[in-house]
């Protein structure tokens, strides 16, 4: 098992009352799964993803990631954990505008203390694999949205994570570009990478092998 959430609650205080963002979420994810999280705006999809990605805390419940009790870990250990096993893909790509494609890809490796030659090899590998060798010296703003998201996925993959978390990865793309990214996800999944994506589109959700529906912070159903 890759990760398990048990009875997770998350709330914020508003006017003396708890407003629940996540309500009693229990979820098991096995390695190699491809999960789509669906639900209307404000249903807690992104919050769930952030909790899984350890970017956000929760108030009650437990979370186990590869046998480590995440809710008990210190910030530094948690960072080490997700640095090693989790890659993020964002709707707005979130590439660093001041760095070139090459440097953006290299950045996660810097935080993992790979040697210079290792980094060069890994970045070259990635550029090659995504067919963006010719773009390596361009800055993000010089690329189309689809190309930027391609770089975003490449960056998420470069540190060879077990799990990719994608928050509406095609939300800013046209349908053709979106399809390309989804195809890419399917390929990755076939290679054994676990993927959890948040999406609005039924069509994209269908790429997942399991669909989780959220409403007002509560899981209201699972389908396959």
């Amino acid at each position: 098992m890759l990760l398990e959430l048990k009875n997770v609650f998350k709330w914020v205080q508003q006017g003396g009352q708890h407003v629940f963002l996540l309500k009693d979420i229990s979820l098991q994810v096995e390695e190699g799964e491809f999960i789509s999280v669906m639900g209307p705006s404000g249903s807690g999809k992104s919050t769930l993803l952030n909790v899984i990605g350890m970017l956000d805390d929760f108030d009650e419940g437990s979370y186990t990631f590869l046998d480590d009790p995440v809710h008990l870990l210190k910030a530094k250990h948690r960072a080490n954990l997700y640095k090693q096993y989790i890659g993020f893909v964002f709707q707005a790509y979130h590439l660093i505008d001041e760095l070139t494609v090459y440097e953006n890809l290299e950045m996660p490796l810097l935080y993992k203390k790979h040697s210079g030659s290792e980094r060069r090899a890994m970045v070259a590998d990635m550029l090659d694999r995504f067919n963006i060798v010719g773009k390596k010296d361009l800055f993000p703003t010089q690329l189309s949205g689809g190309q930027q998201q391609l770089v975003g996925v490449a960056r998420a993959l470069i540190s060879q994570p077990k799990l990719i978390l994608a928050d509406e990865p095609t939300g800013n793309l046209n349908s053709r570009q979106g399809e390309e990214i989804m195809e890419l996800f399917r390929e990755l999944n076939d290679e054994g990478v676990t993927i959890i994506q948040v999406t609005h589109s039924e069509k994209n959700a269908a790429y997942g092998r399991r669909i989780i529906n959220l409403l007002d912070g509560r899981m209201i159903g699972e389908g396959r």
Binding site: A79, K83, H94, L95, I96, Y111
Partner: peptide, 16 residues
């Protein structure tokens, strides 16, 4: 801020 967010989500620690 965005850069800080990206770096942190990619694995940067605060002291870095």
């Amino acid at each position: 801020a965005k850069e800080v967010g990206i770096r942190k989500s990619i694995g940067s620690q605060r002291n870095q």
